[in-house]
Nucleic acid binder design. Structure first.
Lengths: 235, 235
DNA sequence: CGATATAATGACCGCTTGGTCATTCTGCTG
DNA sequence: CAGCAGAATGACCAAGCGGTCATTATATCG
């Protein structure tokens, strides 16, 4: 441990400061949104003066980005663990939903930042879309792989794994968003059970569209049209 | 037609102005978001001076609210028509998805406002949540009724209709959001077909969880636990 | 204990923007 | 055409905020 050792005193302090700033940033951005959040408030929340903030981060934007990625990293880690731990695909679905929902409920401010960030991406016309897109994509990747594996193993029918993954992703997001604004009690396990069963049943092998209404034009073709689903392969 | 007649010249002009302002507002709020949008820009987009704007709307907030509700009203109308026209529940699902997706693609700016508004609601801590919540609720109400009807008619299994409705709602929202940011081509009908089939299969009658993994604790109870699902009965 | 280097501070600047209001314009009426 | 009422205008104001930097506090070392 000779060469790159020694976290000098400055390093430690610096790390501490950066961290405090990051936490403060998540809190403030979470409750005010990017535009309404002020650097003054973030600094004060981190117990430093405004000027100090600029010793650690270049700009409001940069501290925002840092706060966002730090949350994303943690969330991804949790998601990955949850999926890896699941013994089969059916449980992977509920594990995915549960892990994410729990993380978000434990970090409400981050969830708010997250939602605002997505909204921002949709709103602002492409400044650095692909970069952010990659982060979001990474979130569904693991799930997508799990879907593909399950299909290969014949646990489920053949489906577009990317489209399936984002569907599960969207359901989870919706669940969290709804429960986040509501004030009353609720049982997360129950919500997850409902949604994961819905999806599971939807993916089970079995007769396709039993011609309840044969004349429909949009339904019926596909069922193996892999590649080309919902997932957007941008660029 | 004697009493409340006569749209006086002023009335007509006033209506025209309000409308132009509303359109401009949707455009500007849509592409900049509430905070970054400026009254100056909205006025200019509507071909009036900034001061004129305040002759028709009290404040930035009030023109924002007006723009949002006008879009919501139109969207709700379209959604209602689509569901009503559907001959059965299965088609109601895809009609719902298609109608909303098409509306959003035709009014991208409104979709952006819409997403930002939701994000805003999640972000800001309860200023006038219930009021806005009601508008959002109305969007799933029709669908919820359709689900309940279908269950009663035995088209599908017994499920929590509110939870089912929001699930379909969230899938639709996700679909639109994803396609909105992506730049490439895509086939809406295909996306809708995939999702509506997923949901339809998920709702079909049939054996419940075929004990692929019996020992799970969160899955299994319910299947008729109406009332208490995802939908939040706030207040 | 000085001396020096580095970190922290917060008053301050420039700029943006929501909202106002004195002034100007428009078109109707007699 | 003159006079006038109401609509429209845009210069202006005050407030808020991101970012800077001269000044001050702190830590290290000889």
């Amino acid at each position: 441990m000779p060469t790159t050792r020694r976290p000098t005193k400055e390093d430690v302090l610096s790390a501490y400061r950066r961290n405090a700033l990051l936490g403060a940033a998540i809190r403030v951005f979470g409750e005010r949104g990017f535009d309404c959040a002020t650097m003054e408030r973030i600094a004060e929340e981190a117990d430093v003066a405004k000027g100090t903030t600029y010793l650690y981060y270049d700009s409001k934007q940069s501290i925002y980005d840092a706060a966002l990625s730090s949350g994303f990293a943690e969330l991804d880690e949790r998601t990955r663990e949850a999926i890896d731990r699941a013994p089969n695909f059916r449980e992977a679905i509920s594990a995915f939903m549960t892990a994410r929902a729990e993380y978000f409920f434990e970090h409400r401010d981050f969830f708010r930042m997250y939602v605002a960030a997505i909204a921002r991406q949709i709103t602002s016309s492409r400044p650095r879309a692909s970069e952010f897109q990659a982060v979001v994509d990474r979130q569904t990747r693991r799930l997508e792989q799990a879907v593909a594996r399950a299909a290969a193993r014949r646990e489920i029918r053949r489906v577009d794994s990317a489209a399936t993954a984002v569907a599960i992703f969207d359901l989870t997001r919706g669940l969290v968003a709804r429960r986040m604004v509501s004030t009353g009690e609720f049982d997360l396990a129950e919500d997850v059970a409902f949604l994961s069963e819905l999806v599971w049943r939807g993916l089970r092998k079995g007769p396709g569209l039993k011609a309840q209404d044969p004349g429909d034009k949009t339904i019926g073709k596909r069922e193996k049209g892999q590649r080309k689903g919902i997932r957007d392969r941008d660029t």
